[in-house]
Design a protein around this nucleic acid. Structure first.
Lengths: 287, 287
DNA sequence: TGCCGCCGATACCGTACGGGTATCGTCGCA
DNA sequence: TGCGACGATACCCGTACGGTATCGGCGGCA
C-alpha cells in the first residue's frame, strides 16, 4: 500500500470510470486495473463494484477513499513542510491578465493563508499567452482560461463562461438579444500577435481567419473596438466600459476557466494550489 | 516519496547507522544508502551529516523525521480502519505464561483501547515455547522473554531482567548474597521437555547439560525445587512462594523481555502493537 | 436478432528500478 | 603504518510496473 497506489485508487473513485481515471493519471487503463486489483487483494476486500451499468464504490471502498484522501493530503503537507525547512518552498502562479476573474487574487491570498511558509510568486500575463508561461516553464501553475494548446499540460475546468460579441454601443447589432457568427462574418476582428497560441487565437476569432488590428491586452481590445470599428469576442460576465456593448453569441462554446500545470509535475505545492482552486470554485466563493 | 522510502529514512534516523538500519530493514546497506540519497535529491537538501565520527540528522532531516513518523503512523491507522471495515481486523497476541510480567494483560487492554474495532485474541503459552507459537504461525506477535532461536523472527528488546538461582529456603546457598554457576554444577536442574527451543533450554540450564525432572510451567518449576531437591534459574524480580529463595547469579546474562514477530510481516496491527509495547516499557508503566 | 461500440479484464512484452554482492575510499585508532 | 569500521560506488539481476494488443460481456439500435 504505497502512496502511488492510493492516488490511483482515489482517481478511480473520483471518476468511477477506469478509462477516464487512467487518462487523468497519464497512464493506460490495463495497468490501472491491475493496480486496483492488487490493492483489493492487499486490503482483502473488493473496493469497487464493476457492474455493466458502471463502476461504484463498495462500503469498504468508501472507507478507504475517505482515509486515503486525508493521508494523501497529509503526505503533501509533509513535503511542503520539509521544503519549507529546506528553504525551497516556492511556487510561481500565473494569472491571465484579462480581469476576468476577481477571484484570482483572492485565491492567491487563500493559498498564502494555508501555507504561510511558502513563498508565492505571481506572474500576470497579457492575452497573448493563455498558458501564462507554463509551456516556457516560467510558472508552476496557471489560473487561466481556455481553449489553448494543452499538449504537455494537465488541465482542470473550474467554470464555463459564455461569450458574446463585443461591439460599439452604437453598432446596429448592439440592441440584439443574440447574434450568430454568421452575423459577424464581414467585420474586422482584433487579432493577437504572430506566435500566439493558435487554438486560443482561433477561438477568439470565431474559428475563422480574420483581418484587423493586433492587440495584446483587454484594454487594447476595447480600444480597438471603440476606435477602429472592429469587433471582438469577450465574456458575457465582463463589466464593459461605456460606449461598448456585448451581445450573446449563441453558436460559440463557452470559454472555460481552468487551472493548469505541467503534466507529470508532482510538486505538492501545485497539487495543493489546484485543490484550493477547485474547492473555491465549487463553493462558488469566486463568482 | 513513497511510504517505503520514508520507512527507510526513519530506520536510519533511529539507528543513526546505515548498517544497523539496513539490518533492521532486512536488506543490505548499499541499496539503503542509495535510497536515502535519492530521497535527499527529491527533498533538495541533505538529511544526514555523514561525518567520520558518525551519522547525525540535519535540521531538515529532523523536520522530515517528525513528519514521517506521524505520516507512517497515520498510514498504519488507515490500514487498520480499512481492515476493520472489511471485517478482517484481528490480531493474535502471544504471552509467555511465566507470570513474569504483570504488564502483559495491561498491554492488551491498552491496545484494545487504542483500536476498539480490532479483535484481539490472546494465546498464553507455557515455558516450553518461548516464541508463543510465532514459529508455528499461531500468533501474530509475542510478548515474551529471551533468549530463543530468532531465525525468521524480528525481536525488539523491552527490558533486561537479572536472574538468580531458585533454591529451597533451607538450602545452604539460600543465605548467600550471590552465587556462580560453578556453585551449582553438581545439582539436579529441572529440564524442559524434548523439542523445547534449544537456545532457551540451554539458557535456563546455565549453559550446561543437566539431569533432573521435566517441567513445563512456572508452578511445576517451583514444585520441582520444593519436592525433588533440584534447583533452577528464575527471575530476581519474581515473587517467590514460601519455602523458596532466589540468590543472584552473577555470571549469567540477564533474560531479556522482548516483543517479537515474524520477519517481513507488514501487518500494521503488529506494528502498532510493537509501538505500544515499546512506548509502555520506555515509560516504565509496566514495571 | 444481429451488429457495433463501450469498457473492464486478460495476455504478453520491454524496460527501469529496487534488490543483491563485491569492492573502494576514508578516517580513527592501536 | 597497518587494520578495522563504515558509508559510497560499481555492477549484476530479477521483478514489477509501465506499455500495446486483444478478449469478453453487455447494452443500444436498426
Amino acid at each position: 500500500m504505497e502512496l502511488r497506489t492510493l492516488r490511483y485508487f482515489v482517481a478511480v473513485a473520483d471518476e468511477l470510470h477506469f478509462g477516464r481515471a487512467a487518462a487523468r493519471l497519464h497512464m493506460s487503463q490495463p495497468p490501472l486495473s491491475r493496480a486496483i486489483k492488487q490493492l483489493e487483494n492487499e486490503v482483502g476486500a473488493a473496493l469497487f463494484d464493476r457492474s455493466p451499468s458502471g463502476v461504484s464504490l463498495t462500503p469498504v471502498g468508501a472507507v478507504l477513499l475517505d482515509e486515503a484522501r486525508t493521508l494523501l493530503d497529509q503526505a503533501d503537507r509533509l513535503r511542503i513542510r520539509v521544503a519549507a525547512a529546506a528553504g525551497t518552498a516556492a511556487i510561481t502562479v500565473g494569472f491571465l491578465g484579462d480581469s476576468a476573474d476577481p477571484g484570482a487574487a483572492r485565491l492567491a491570498d487563500a493559498y498564502r493563508r494555508r501555507h504561510p511558509q511558502v513563498e508565492v510568486r505571481i506572474r500576470e500575463t497579457d492575452l497573448t499567452d493563455p498558458t501564462c508561461g507554463l509551456h516556457a516553464g516560467l510558472v508552476d501553475v496557471a489560473l487561466t482560461r481556455g481553449p489553448f494548446d494543452e499538449t504537455g499540460l494537465t488541465v482542470r475546468e473550474l467554470r464555463a463562461d459564455p461569450v458574446g460579441a463585443l461591439v460599439r454601443a452604437d453598432d446596429p447589432l448592439a440592441g440584439r438579444d443574440s447574434v450568430k457568427l454568421a452575423d459577424l462574418a464581414d467585420r474586422r476582428w482584433f487579432l493577437f500577435p504572430e506566435g500566439t497560441d493558435p487554438v486560443w487565437q482561433s477561438y477568439w476569432n470565431g474559428g475563422a481567419p480574420r483581418e484587423g488590428p493586433v492587440v495584446r491586452a483587454v484594454q487594447e481590445c476595447r480600444q480597438a473596438v471603440l476606435w477602429n470599428g472592429t469587433i471582438g469576442m469577450t465574456l458575457l460576465n465582463h463589466q464593459q466600459a461605456a460606449g461598448l456593448a456585448v451581445v450573446p453569441l449563441i453558436d460559440m462554446p463557452p470559454s472555460r476557466v481552468v487551472v493548469a500545470w505541467n503534466e507529470g509535475d508532482t510538486n505538492p505545492l501545485v497539487r495543493s494550489f489546484v485543490g484550493i482552486a477547485i474547492a473555491a470554485y465549487r463553493d462558488g466563493r469566486t463568482h
